[in-house]
Amino acid sequence: MNPRGKYIRPYPKSNGPVRDLNSPLLLCRTEGMAPELTEIMPVVAGSEIVLEWHHNDASDMDNVISPSHRGPCFVYMAPMESNGIGNSWFKIYEQGFNAEKNMWCTDILRENHGKLSVKIPTQINNGEYILRTEIIALHNAKAVGEAQFYPNCAQVRVTGATSGNPELYPIDLIYNATDPGILFDKKNAGSTYIIPGPPVYPPQ
């Protein structure tokens, strides 16, 4: 997905984080949630799509995210008709600290030039969805309210699914400021990190 591309809902040019878990910006980091302003990308259930993060540009030389901004990555989906409001979200991907590689998800993103492959579940219903990506930077997260959230939303149209019934959650209630995965001292070993939020669907 191309940053500021036709499938991504508009987000601030400042590219700054959200810190307030009660902020409406936590949804997609945009105040303009009108779905008709963004095109919809066709995807096939069961296939892998490549998501991209970039700091300045889309070149392989771009640093994607500051090496100090280490933390987990997540991908959520919500039916388009919900526009992301209320109990509408389910998590399809999470990656925190990889003890085998001794790397956070953000480290792996940097190594992969900002690219991350994510599988679209087959156990969902066909239709149009908001696809929400998120990075949580933990470099200042030893203090309450200092974890940095970087969400963005794209729009996809899923075909080839087999139907499903994932448990749905509201974005404004999936995290707590004192969750161990949100309030986290980077001096602690990454292998002790507890991933916040709901479980991945379908169960891994």
Rank of each mutant, 00 (worst) to 15 (best):
E111M: 07
L131H: 12
P196M: 00
H139Y: 07
A34K: 06
P3D: 02
P170E: 08
T106L: 00
I8A: 02
R19G: 11
P180T: 03
P42N: 10
L168G: 07
G181K: 03
D60N: 14
I182T: 09
M80F: 13
I171F: 09
N188P: 09
L51Y: 12
S163C: 06
P17N: 03
N2P: 05
G190Y: 15
A99Q: 14
A78M: 01
P121Q: 01
Y11W: 06
E128A: 03
G190N: 14
D185K: 06
P10C: 02
A45R: 11
F149M: 02
P17Q: 04
T159H: 13
G46T: 02
Y175P: 05
Y129D: 00
E81K: 15
P10N: 01
M77H: 14
R110M: 07
R19A: 05
A34N: 15
L25R: 15
G86R: 10
Y129P: 15
P180C: 02
S191K: 11
Y175E: 06
I120P: 15
N140F: 02
N63D: 05
L168Y: 15
L131V: 10
S23V: 01
I182R: 09
A147W: 08
A99D: 15
F184Y: 15
S82D: 14
L183H: 08
E146N: 03
A34V: 15
P166R: 06
G96N: 11
N165Y: 13
L27I: 08
R110L: 01
E81R: 15
H113G: 00
E167Y: 06
A58T: 14
L109H: 10
G84Q: 08
P202Y: 11
T122C: 04
L116A: 05
L25G: 09
M33H: 10
Q204L: 06
Q123C: 04
P42M: 06
V64Y: 06
S23E: 08
V200D: 01
C28N: 12
I171Q: 04
A58V: 14
R4A: 04
A189I: 11
I124H: 11
P67I: 00
P198D: 05
G160N: 11
G145M: 11
N98A: 00
D62C: 02
L51V: 04
D57S: 08
P17L: 00
T122E: 13
F97I: 07
I108F: 13
F149Q: 03
H54R: 12
I136W: 05
I171S: 01
Y193L: 09
G86V: 12
I85C: 01
I8V: 07
M41L: 13
A58W: 07
G46L: 11
K6I: 12
V144P: 01
A137H: 07
K91A: 00
G96D: 10
L21W: 07
Y169W: 12
P198M: 01
M80W: 11
E94T: 08
A177G: 10
N102R: 13
N2K: 01
R132W: 08
L26S: 10
R157H: 13
E94L: 02
L183E: 03
L183N: 07
N98Q: 03
I135C: 09
L25Q: 13
Y93R: 00
L168A: 09
E36R: 14
G86E: 06
I136V: 12
E111H: 10
G32V: 11
I8Q: 14
